[in-house]
Write a protein that binds this DNA or RNA. Structure first.
Lengths: 209, 209
DNA sequence: CCGAGTATGTATACCAGGTATGTTCGTGTC
DNA sequence: GACACGAACATACCTGGTATACATACTCGG
C-alpha cells in the first residue's frame, strides 16, 4: 500500500506521467529504495481501475498524463489521517532467522549473530557516511528534506538492530552459563524426546511422532 | 524468502505436515506474526518444485509428510551462513508517508508525526506488557526462547521508531524556525513555481507545468 | 547524412508474500 | 442420524518486487 499512496501523494501536486513519478519518488527516498519502473505502471493501472486516478490527456511531448480524482484525494487524505498500523508489523527475515537458529541442528546462534552484526554495522557505516556527505537540510527543498528524514529512519532502525543483536548475544551467553551450571549441578536430561537443543554439530536425521 | 527458509529450518528437525509447520512457526514468533494457513502449502509446493523438499509418505493419521532433501539442507546452511542484506532494506510505509507529508498540500507533517507517535507508543506498551507477562527465558525451551527474542526485536524496532519520530519533529521545528526568521529578514519567495510548501490548510487544486 | 549505441518512456510476464474463502473429513453432541 | 465444529488442506486473488521486451528519441563518430 505504500507505493499506491506514494504515487497518489505525488499526483496531488498535479498531473504526471509514469517515468516522472518514478524519478520524483526516488528523489524523495534517495537511492535507498529504488523503485522498479514496471511497478509504477502496474500501480497506476490499479489506481485507475479503483477510480483514484484517471488518464487525462497528454504532455507536450506525448506522455500520457495521470490525474488524481476526488475519490483519490479523499483516499489520500484518510491515509494521512490514519497511522501506519504497528500492531501487526511486517515479518522481519532476521528475526525469523535467529528464532530458527536458536535450536537448529548444526548451527551456532552466536555465529549467526556475529556475522549479521558485522554486516549490519557495515550498512550503518554506509548510511552515516552518506549522511555526513549531505548538507544540513535546506528549509525550502522538500525533496531533499524528505530524503534526509528517510535516511535518518534507516540509521535509527539499523542502530536498533545492532543493539538488539548485542542484546541477543548477551542473553544467550547468560542462558548458556545458566544451563551449564545447572547441568554441572544435577546432570539433567541431555536430549529430551525430539525437540531438545542439540548443542554443537550433532546433525541427526531426527524423525519422530 | 523468510517463510521459505523458516519452513526449511523446521523441516530439518524431521518430517512434518503442513499444519504442524504452521503451528511450530507461530509458537516461535508468538502471535505477532500469525502465518496464514494457505501460505504454508503454497510455499511447500514451491519448495518441492525447487527440489529442496519432498513429499514423503504419511502420518499415522494420514497427514502428508514433507521431508527436507540434501539440496534443501545445503540451501538452509547457506542461508544461515550469509547475513540478511541490509544494504537495500524493505520499503517502510511510515517513512514514505512522512517523506510525502513534508510538502503535501493540506497536510501538516507534525500532525502526522504526532498521530503516529501516539499509535506507535501504544503498540510499544502492548509489547512491553506482553514481555512483562513472560517469564525469564527457560534455557531448555528453544521455542519460548525464540519468541522472547522476536518480541524483543519488536520492542527495539518500535522504540527506535518513536525516537525517530521525535527526532523528525525536532528537526522540522528547527527548520520551520529557520525559515521563519529568514522570511522575516528578507521576505523571500512564498510559492516557488509549482513545488513550494504551502503551509497550513491551503489545499489548492494545483495543476501546472 | 547515417547508423550504432544510449537514454527515456511504456508495457508485460513472472515470482513471492499476504489474505480470504472453500472443501473435506473426523469428532462430538443433541 | 443430523448437525456443528475444528483440523487439515487447497485455491483464488491482490499487492509488491524484479527482469525484460520494446519502441522512440537523442547523440556521436564516421
Amino acid at each position: 500500500m505504500s507505493i499506491r499512496h506514494g504515487l497518489l501523494a505525488l499526483l496531488e501536486h498535479g498531473p504526471r506521467y509514469g517515468a516522472r513519478l518514478r524519478s520524483e519518488l526516488e528523489s524523495r527516498t534517495g537511492a535507498t529504495w529504488s523503485l522498479n519502473v514496471g511497478q509504477v505502471y502496474t500501480t497506476l493501472n490499479r489506481l485507475e481501475r479503483d477510480g483514484l486516478v484517471v488518464q487525462d490527456g497528454e504532455d507536450s511531448s506525448g506522455h500520457a498524463l495521470y490525474r488524481i480524482t476526488e475519490e483519490g484525494r479523499s483516499e489520500l487524505d484518510s491515509w494521512f489521517r490514519s497511522p501506519v498500523d504497528r500492531s501487526n508489523p511486517p515479518r522481519d527475515e532476521l528475526a525469523i532467522k535467529l528464532a530458527m537458529a536458536v535450536n537448529a541442528p548444526g548451527v551456532d546462534v552466536r555465529d549467526v549473530i556475529q556475522l549479521q552484526r558485522h554486516h549490519t554495522l557495515r550498512a550503518m557505516q554506509d548510511y552515516t557516511r552518506l549522511k555526513a556527505g549531505t548538507p544540513e537540510p535546506p528549509p525550502d527543498r522538500p525533496e531533499e528534506m524528505a530524503w534526509v528524514l528517510v535516511l535518518e529512519q534507516l540509521i535509527f532502525q539499523t542502530e536498533a538492530e545492532v543493539r538488539w543483536l548485542d542484546h541477543c548475544e548477551a542473553r544467550l551467553v547468560r542462558m548458556a552459563a545458566a544451563a551449564g551450571t545447572r547441568q554441572a549441578e544435577a546432570g539433567t536430561r541431555q536430549d529430551p524426546a525430539d525437540d531438545g537443543t542439540p548443542r554443537g554439530r550433532s546433525r541427526r536425521a531426527s524423525r519422530s511422532r
